[in-house]
Amino acid sequence: MSVDPETVRRIAQLARIAVAEHEIEHLRGELNAILAFVEQLSEVNVEGVEPMTSVIPIEMRKRPDVVTDGGIPDAILKNAPAAEEDFFVVPKVVE
């Protein structure tokens, strides 16, 4: 499988990464090189094989569904590029 310029634009949009028009062709070449490399997997017979979900057979531990942390807005906001009172500030979302 290989990708065309339109697909590269669509992937960039899905990944929320702005890509300049002049970069599309180069990126397409790189992505296709990787896709050609992983294409080898299509020759493996995977019929009846379960996909890997946990590499070490351990049962996930659960904890009581109770609040264990919180009340630390200063710590949460400490690295915010923009914050006001106890909120993160972002550009307008709704028109």
Binding site: M1, V3, T7, V8, I11, A12, L14, A15, I17, L27, E30, L31, I34, L35, V38, L41, S42, V44, V46, V49, E50, P51, M52, T53
Partner: peptide
């Protein structure tokens, strides 16, 4: 950026089974 884009592609609608699911089966093998 390259890896995020490859990852986004292999997880995108219509390609998940062909790439990601198959890779996880190969991982089992």
């Amino acid at each position: 950026r390259r890896r995020i884009m490859i990852g986004t592609y292999v997880l995108s609608a219509g390609y998940y089974d062909a790439y990601y699911l198959r890779a996880q089966k190969v991982r089992t093998l």
